[in-house]
Amino acid sequence: MKKLYSILISTMLSMILLSGIASAHVSVLPSEAKQGSYEKFTVRVPNEKDIPTVKVEVKFPIDDVAISRFAQTPGWKYEAVKDASGKITSAIWTATGDGVLAGEFIEFETQGKVGDKATSISWKAYQTYKDGSVVEWTGAAGSDKPASVTKVVAGAGTDSHGQPLAGAASEKSSNNSSLTWALYIAGCALVVALLALFINFRKSSK
């Protein structure tokens, strides 16, 4: 019985982990874009501590993406940092109010053009909390604090007005499919564990 309980607990923890994979780290959407396309990039920042997030900085690899516009975010102000040539190399969002509280997340939107020869866009992010601590989301894939990466593929993307061109992939559909699949696997595992627990209970009660 104890072994069965352990299996059930492990399964439930796996379900929680799987459902939280997409939102645990600072991430930038879409996860895939077309070379030469104009995209809206969404920086999603979850709060992983019990104190507010009050500042977020994201660096833009100018050889791979040219950021040109920003959307206003209520409760936040932004600063576009430029190099000597006038290219935007990073953005700093600073809270004007309470910031991102525990259990919350915030999204910042930007727009830009994907490089014609880019193969990926690595978004290095720096998340500052109210106590002054900084979490650097700059590591490689699979690390504790990975930088979000947008894969870049050849082909048609979107025009300067954001309209899809022929062959453009739907990021929303892709994200929904991935999340649905992860939840499906976690749900199946939970059902199997509950079924095993029920069978064991029936045997014990005889």
Rank of each mutant, 00 (worst) to 15 (best):
M1S: 14
M1C: 15
M1P: 13
M1Q: 15
L4K: 15
Y5N: 15
Y5D: 14
Y5R: 15
L8N: 05
T11W: 09
M12H: 12
L13P: 01
G20N: 13
H25F: 02
E32S: 05
E32T: 00
A33W: 01
K34I: 11
G36K: 00
S37V: 03
E39C: 00
K40H: 13
F41A: 07
N47E: 01
N47K: 04
D50M: 13
T53Y: 10
V54T: 10
V56S: 03
P61H: 07
V65T: 03
I67Y: 00
R69E: 15
F70T: 11
F70S: 11
G75N: 07
W76E: 03
Y78F: 13
E79Q: 14
E79I: 15
A80N: 07
A80G: 04
A80L: 14
S90H: 00
W93A: 00
W93S: 03
L101P: 01
L101R: 15
L101F: 06
A102H: 05
E104W: 10
F108K: 00
F108I: 03
Q111V: 13
T119V: 11
S120F: 02
W123C: 01
A125W: 08
Y126G: 08
Y126V: 05
Q127W: 05
T128P: 03
K130L: 10
D131M: 12
V135M: 08
V135T: 11
E136T: 06
T138P: 00
A140R: 05
P146N: 02
A147P: 10
A156M: 10
G157D: 06
T158R: 15
G162Q: 02
G162P: 07
A166N: 13
A168V: 14
A168W: 01
A168T: 11
A169C: 03
S174W: 00
S177L: 09
T180M: 10
A182R: 01
A182E: 09
G187L: 07
A189V: 04
L190P: 02
V191P: 08
L194K: 09
L194W: 04
N200P: 11
K203F: 03
K206F: 07
